[in-house]
Write a protein that binds this DNA or RNA. Structure first.
Lengths: 340, 340
DNA sequence: TTGTAGGCGTTATCAT
DNA sequence: ATGATAACGCCTACAA
């Protein structure tokens, strides 16, 4: 009846011994308990509890050829995304979806200024069972790496390279941007500008397209656009440029709240009141929109939801429950505040 | 000379075969190359490159008894931290410090409403070689779990339970808060309130203490304090309460920029101008301080730096390079903007 | 310097 | 239902 601390972690053998069964039976009892007598099962359970046994992941992984972990890839070369509330939501979503799973989340972040080569190599190295790619740019080679490695993966945001085998979850950016712009039209605005996102990302591209489509529908001019980089400063610079080139603009659709916030400041110092002189609509509603002056009317980006779905899709594939073949698109709802 | 794709990853055996050496020699060549002839080394290197060999982590881990991964623990029960730029900086810092290491970062996030039990269990399970604990509350049991498991770990932020064996990196919160408050005194303010952080976290506690100390030094009143939860809303609520209880206040030190921002809004709607009627100082300077109206004077929180240091300290211990025994404290510099 | 042999802790196959 | 036994891929004495 000694209670002395084992210095090394208990092994399956010790559990088996303590339970009075063979190692194989113990193993079965621990994994699902198929073809195990109730008594054996109970004995093993007790032994496990008493010894505080946890299976050795490495050993298990070696034979099952499963690592028990999936990667969350953030190939942002300049670390920008990390400062974005987008990442927080993504992380939370993935984390929650993984909770019941006992799968580990391995975070892969690109170094600043680095191309995604190292990450691609890692992914191909078989270190993870699957991957979720969170934000990525044209030309980062991730798609090819994933296809070459036959690694189960799902993208959050439409990949730059479209291919049958690449599954993704995304916001319906075109429709959302269109809706936002329509809202501006409904408000009686006629000279509607946009601050677009980076054009090497599908988000940037799609939101710009939605804006264009809505203006085309309304028969309005589609020349007033400038692109930012999803940061506050980028938004401010773009706004300034728009103001210079189109001093008569009366509305702005910004592809992110952060950029909208930058725009707000520039408009303010230019003496334009919002929404008096100029209406502004942002995108995301991840915290900053409610905190600006005036609070931003915006589109709610269901990041967390998307991340959860992406993870579940990946899990389905890992469990052999089949794989999604079509993209999954979420709508982004309009949130009315005070900037229109 | 066939170039056909292997469907399974190459093993050490195949590398050895291709290089014309034994498995052990190949192994040595791959791990540091000690006691390997130049020719053998070259042959192995070539084989590795040609085959695209990557050591199987599980197999290696099984024999070395090292997992090759460390955990970043975020035991925030309500997911709040995730929305905070603090996490972004921490992540970046840890990530960078890990770059040259080929150690994996495993992210452990508490589920909402959950106590840290599951995480403690995971840590004790020997799944990681070490841990960095990012933000934690009194009573989350992490300290005990870590001490019991003899797991190398470094806290970012002073742990609630103080113990010799618990090493941590932190901002010198007391000194910083004191400096901020002094600045307010220097500006001629005499009725200086504070919006404190959560008091079950050492940060909250320490910054409050700094504020008290400075006021005591100046012989001023120390009754005007209310605590928030590091969120914008929490800051706003606290500010309102302060205004109700101490309508004559002329300065506020908020323990975070987010809370300061909330305070700013309440002050504004109460018709108090900043910095005309009331001076405000925040804490963190992680993006929001520069974006408020007016821009916040604040204390720069060197999160990324801290995270990097914490990681390096952990790495030192893992490499047997000894362990830090005393806490490492960083100063937080005052950043002058326009709210004082 | 090199190779041989044994073992790390699990799971999986196959008799029993 | 149970229990030997053989991998899984790698590292590391130890012997040559």
């Amino acid at each position: 009846m000694s209670t002395d601390r084992q210095t090394t972690a208990p092994t399956l053998d010790e559990v088996a011994l303590a339970a009075g069964v063979s190692r194989s039976t113990a193993s079965r009892a621990i994994n699902g308990g198929d073809r195990v007598s109730p008594e054996a099962q109970a004995a093993v359970d007790a032994a496990v509890a008493r010894l505080g046994y946890t299976p050795n992941r490495a050993a298990r992984s070696l034979v099952t050829r499963r690592t028990g972990s999936i990667a969350l890839v953030i190939p942002e070369p300049d670390g920008r995304v990390l400062a974005d509330p987008f990442l927080a939501g993504t992380l939370r979503g993935v984390g929650h979806a993984l909770d019941p799973t006992d799968l580990q989340l391995v975070l892969l972040i690109a170094r600043p200024g680095e191309h995604a080569g190292r990450i691609a190599r890692y992914l191909k190295g078989g270190h993870v069972d699957g991957a979720i790619i969170a934000s990525h740019h044209q030309g980062d080679e991730l798609e090819n790496a994933i296809m070459a490695a036959h690694l189960p993966a799902v993208f959050i945001g439409r990949p730059a390279v479209e291919a049958e085998s690449l599954v993704y979850v995304d916001v319906d950016n075109v429709a959302a941007a269109r809706r936002a712009t329509q809202r501006l039209v409904e408000a009686g605005r006629t000279r509607i500008a946009t601050i677009a996102g980076p054009l090497d990302m599908s988000v940037g591209h799609d939101r710009l397209e939605g804006w264009r489509a809505a203006l085309a529908d309304a028969g309005l001019d589609v020349t007033a656009s400038a692109d930012g980089d999803f940061t506050l400063t980028g938004g401010a610079i773009a706004m300034q440029r728009l103001l210079d080139d189109h001093p008569d603009l009366d509305a702005v659709f910004a592809a992110s709240d952060l950029m909208a916030q930058g725009a707000l400041r520039v408009l303010q110092s230019a003496g334009r009141s919002v929404p008096g002189d100029v209406s502004v609509i942002g995108f995301d509603d991840l915290g900053v929109a409610a905190a600006t002056t005036p609070p931003l009317t915006t589109l709610r980006n269901p990041v967390e939801q998307m991340a959860r779905t992406a993870t579940n899709v990946l899990l389905d594939e890992l469990e052999g429950r089949g794989r999604a073949t079509r993209p999954i698109l979420y709508p982004a709802e309009l949130v009315e505040r005070a900037s229109v």
